[in-house]
Computed example of a mutant assay.
Amino acid sequence: MDSTRFSADRPAATYLPAGVRRAVKIVVVGHFGVGKTTFIGSLSEIEPLRTEERMTAASAPVDDLSGAGSKETTTVALDFGRITLSDELVLYLFGTPGQQRFVQLWEDMTVGALGALLLVDPARLEATFPVIDLVESFGLEYAVAVNSFDPSVRYEASEIREALDLLPDTPVVHCDARDVASSAEALMELVRHLLSRTG
């Protein structure tokens, strides 16, 4: 995968090139408020499809906003973005909703997915365990991208691996979901992992 395809000044292509013959599907997963919508938005070459709704007082009893800052909206179905990797290959990114009440949407979204990129917030690692359980229940290979909201606090990959009880070969990479280059590197780490598992 060529990282230059993720430059900040990439052209906004609406339609796929006529030569595209193959599509790859990746799901971007993580707990509520971890940055999935931002991550897909930073990489997508098209205006991402977002299904965000304003959060209201009615959701207060079921949505834990602790650690989510000033979050005012939430994804209620999916996020969708696209990256054309070559003249023949396109990558589709599907972002899952983070709340447990939307888990039933996961099954359809994971069908045909090559793998998953799991975003985690190191300040809320406990919220990641149910997501890991879901990813593994669908049999998806995955990599972990640590999207830290506090740049002054940085945990080593080995500390994240131990805290989440990850397998030794599960990649762990740090990223900033707002930054194109950082998000692209996290995605490439997942792709390298998937290639190593199929090779």
Rank of each mutant, 00 (worst) to 15 (best):
R178L: 05
F149D: 07
V172K: 06
L166M: 02
A145P: 03
L166R: 05
N147G: 08
A177S: 15
P168A: 11
S148Q: 11
A163I: 01
F149I: 14
C175P: 01
A157V: 09
T170E: 08
R178W: 04
D169V: 01
N147F: 11
L164M: 10
L166H: 02
E141H: 15
L166P: 02
R178E: 10
Y155Q: 10
S148F: 00
P168C: 10
P168K: 12
D179L: 02
Y155F: 15
L166E: 01
E162D: 14
L167K: 14
D169I: 00
L164W: 08
A143M: 12
D150A: 15
G139P: 13
V153N: 05
A157L: 00
V153A: 08
L164H: 06
R161K: 13
E159A: 14
N147E: 10
V144T: 08
P168T: 10
V153Y: 05
A143C: 11
D169M: 03
A143L: 11
P171E: 12
V173H: 04
E141V: 04
C175L: 13
L140D: 03
S158K: 10
V173G: 01
D150V: 15
E156L: 06
A157S: 13
L140S: 07
D169Y: 06
L140P: 04
V172W: 02
A145N: 08
